[in-house]
Amino acid sequence: MAKINSESIKKLKERLQIRKPWDSIIIFVLNVLIAIPLFIILHQNLIDPNWPLHLDRVLIFIALVVSIQLVLRLLKTILIVCIFFYLIALIYGSIFGKYGFVAVFEDYRAMVFAMADDPNPEDIIISKLLPFPNKSKTLDAIDYNNPRVRNFALAATRKYFNEVKSNRKDRLMIQCFAVFKEIRNKWNYVNDPKGREYIAYASESLQHFSGDCDDHAILMAACIRAIGGTPRLIHTGGHLYPEMLVGHKADLETANYLIKEVLFVDESRGKEIHYHIDERGQIWLNLDYTATYPGGPFMSEEILGALTLE
């Protein structure tokens, strides 16, 4: 009986084993397929020491490839099983909206682009700032529940970038960028009445798309919030402007790629993406009317206060 079992196992191994040179080719391909998503996960979660030419990431990738190669060599007798389960996992993720083939490709593409074209971080904004001026009036003016505000934001998402294919995670970001583009294209700067601070409701500004920086920031914040985004207003000595929550490092890489390679190619060509980091490590992109693309340059003024809508 033992001899029969031994012969059965031997025959099974022979069936699973791939003949040369195909075993080396398949091991190499499988190595690459496994290394890419693992490297993306490591890249997004490890602290970036900012080595020149991203040498730290190069060394991590080399070590990862060598390690996987050694493991696959040891498992080459069951290589078919490894390939089968790996493909099944990606197929399942693609069908049911989890992490699949498209997600691997998009994350890898955004990561490589971001490594070659770093965004430009600004000062970390902490929560202990000065009291926000006219806070209650400003919050009331951001009437994102108003049907006119909601409908305008929805129309902007249909007008711009609706044809851009995206996964569920990136769709909201793209739609917020569409809102930015629509308001930026329509906005006409007009001063407040002399000697008076006039705070217009977002629904009011939709009538003429005119006003000062406060009115623009309020309208932008209301529209971003109306479609599910998280905006905040930044107060400086003589200026008020809106920002949009992007997320963390991996989300910034996606935003950087979308802005510079897909959505605002002409406006952002040769320019950097500017953002702030809050005390929780969250990243906020500039959406000021002075910028021609999301993440455009800030007006260089000292930040005095921040008002976040959550």
Rank of each mutant, 00 (worst) to 15 (best):
Arg158Tyr: 14
Arg168Leu: 13
Ala153Gln: 09
Ala141Gly: 06
Lys128Arg: 15
Ala155Cys: 08
Ala153Ser: 14
Lys135Gln: 14
Lys135Cys: 02
Phe132Trp: 13
Asn151Glu: 14
Ile124His: 00
Arg158Lys: 13
Ala141Tyr: 05
Glu122Pro: 08
Arg150Gly: 03
Ser136Arg: 05
Lys128His: 14
Ala141Pro: 04
Thr138Gln: 04
Thr138His: 02
Asn162Asp: 08
Pro147Tyr: 07
Ala155Tyr: 10
Ile126Gln: 08
Val149Cys: 03
Ile125Met: 08
Asp140Lys: 00
Lys159Phe: 04
Ser127Met: 08
Asp143Cys: 02
Asn134Ile: 00
Leu139Cys: 07
Leu129Lys: 05
Lys128Glu: 15
Lys159Gln: 13
Glu122Trp: 14
Pro131Phe: 07
Arg148Ser: 09
Leu129Phe: 06
Asn162Glu: 13
Ile142Phe: 03
Leu130Ala: 11
Ser166Asp: 00
Arg158Pro: 01
Thr157Gln: 04
Arg148Trp: 02
Ala155Thr: 13
Asn134Leu: 06
Asp143Gln: 04
Phe161His: 11
Ser127Arg: 13
Phe152Val: 06
Arg168Gly: 12
Pro147Met: 11
Asn167Ala: 10
Asn145Ser: 13
Asp143Arg: 00
Asn167Pro: 02
Ile125Pro: 03
Val164Glu: 12
Tyr144Gln: 04
Lys165Gly: 06
Thr138Trp: 02
Ala156Tyr: 03
Ala156Arg: 03
Arg148His: 03
Ser166Ile: 00
Ile142Ala: 08
Lys165Phe: 10
Asn134Cys: 04
Glu163Ser: 14
Asp123Ser: 10
Asn151His: 10
Pro131Thr: 08
Asn134Met: 03
Asp140Leu: 01
Thr157Ile: 07
Ile142Ser: 01
Ala156Pro: 07
Arg148Lys: 06
Pro147Asp: 10
Ser136His: 05
Ala141Val: 08
Lys165Val: 14
Phe132Ile: 11
Arg148Ala: 12
Val164Pro: 03
Glu122Arg: 15
Ser166Phe: 00
Arg148Glu: 15
Arg150Cys: 02
Leu129Arg: 04
Leu139Thr: 13
Ser166Arg: 01
Pro133Ser: 08
Arg158Met: 15
Thr138Pro: 02
Arg148Cys: 06
Leu139Ala: 12
Ser136Gly: 03
Asn162Pro: 01
Lys135Trp: 00
Tyr144Ala: 08
Asp143Phe: 00
Ile125Asn: 08
Arg148Gly: 02
Leu139Asn: 06
Asn162Thr: 09
Asn134Ser: 05
Val164Lys: 06
Leu154Lys: 04
Arg150Tyr: 13
Asp143Val: 01
Ser127Pro: 07
Ala153Cys: 11
Leu154Ser: 08
Glu163Ile: 12
Asn167Met: 07
Ile126Val: 10
Arg150Met: 11
Leu130Lys: 11
Arg150Trp: 06
Asp123Thr: 13
Val164Asp: 06
Ala153Val: 00
Val149Tyr: 04
Lys165Gln: 12
Ser166His: 02
Asn145His: 10
Leu129His: 03
